[in-house]
């Protein structure tokens, strides 16, 4: 059955005079992997941050699995538990071990027993290939390893969907693949994903929809392979010409 996970209706967002999102409409159904590309400043990261309420919006509605997060009566903390997010700069908690990073929110937010959280955490670390790093601190890890921990940390909340905000942009080229592989596994496992990235290979391989944003609007969207091979809009052509 087709289940709508994320719905954006005419979302407008501006920072003072600067308009960042100019009426975004978007519907994401369960299992979709949406890859969002666009020049810097096009609003793609901001859109992602609006989806889980990290940024307030000025106009429009954002509905997560039927709950309107723009409604002041909605408990945003509850909604965020269902949305995992991974950041460009990892943002691991430097004062906690790798395993503690992964188990902190399940214990404090979901009220899980320590032993249970630890078991889930260890399984997730196995899944991202870092079982042997559980007791290390984040700054002992490479960027790619830190980012994989960040993915495990987000997954530990057992979210229904995941947001990826340029998660490979801060990585050395040789470390990008290990993170992308984890993301591909997730995508193939049926996770609903919104991915802001410049990795066109990822879009081609596992993306179910490609979306090109510019100046706060969605300029063009479609099947990733078709769109990369044959973009319709002039702006899309120009951008793809630069990144490919």
């Amino acid at each position: 059955m087709r289940r709508v996970m994320i719905q954006l209706e005419q979302v407008h967002k501006h920072f003072g005079q600067l308009k960042v999102l100019n009426g975004i409409d978007l519907e994401v159904t369960k299992g979709e992997v949406i890859v969002i590309i666009g020049p810097s400043g096009s609003g793609k990261s901001t859109m992602l941050r609006c989806v889980n309420g990290l940024e307030p919006i000025q106009k429009g509605r954002i509905i997560i699995e039927g709950d309107d997060i723009t409604d002041p009566k909605t408990d945003q903390n509850k909604i965020r538990q269902r949305i995992g997010m991974v950041f460009q700069s990892f943002n691991l908690f430097p004062h906690r071990t790798v395993l503690d990073n992964v188990t902190l929110a399940p214990i404090k937010v979901q009220g899980k027993k320590k032993a249970e959280a630890k078991q889930i955490g260890e399984e997730l670390l196995v899944r991202v290939g870092l079982a042997d790093k559980a007791k290390d601190y984040p700054d002992q890890l490479s960027g790619g390893q830190q980012q994989r921990v960040a993915i495990a940390r987000a997954l530990a909340m057992q979210p229904d969907m995941m947001l990826f905000d340029e998660v490979t942009s801060a990585l050395d080229p040789e470390l990008v693949a290990e993170v992308l592989n984890v993301m591909k596994d997730l995508a193939l496992g049926g996770m609903t994903m919104l991915v802001v990235t410049h990795e066109m290979g990822f879009a081609r391989e596992v993306g179910t929809r490609l979306m090109f944003m510019d100046e706060g609007v969605i300029v063009e969207e479609g099947d990733p392979r078709k769109m990369i091979a044959d973009p319709q809009e002039e702006r899309t052509k120009k951008f793809l010409g630069m990144v490919l």
């Binding site: 990290l54 997010m85 950041f87 943002n91």
Partner: peptide
């Protein structure tokens, strides 16, 4: 770093939880 608060909030922590478990332990040091 601002990202610490954002990461904590994105995991569903309240502002108070994020302060208590993530921000203050680092700030104290």
């Amino acid at each position: 770093h601002r990202g610490q608060m954002e990461a904590a909030r994105s995991l569903g922590m309240t502002y108070g939880q994020a302060m208590r478990f993530v921000i203050l332990p680092q700030a104290i040091k």
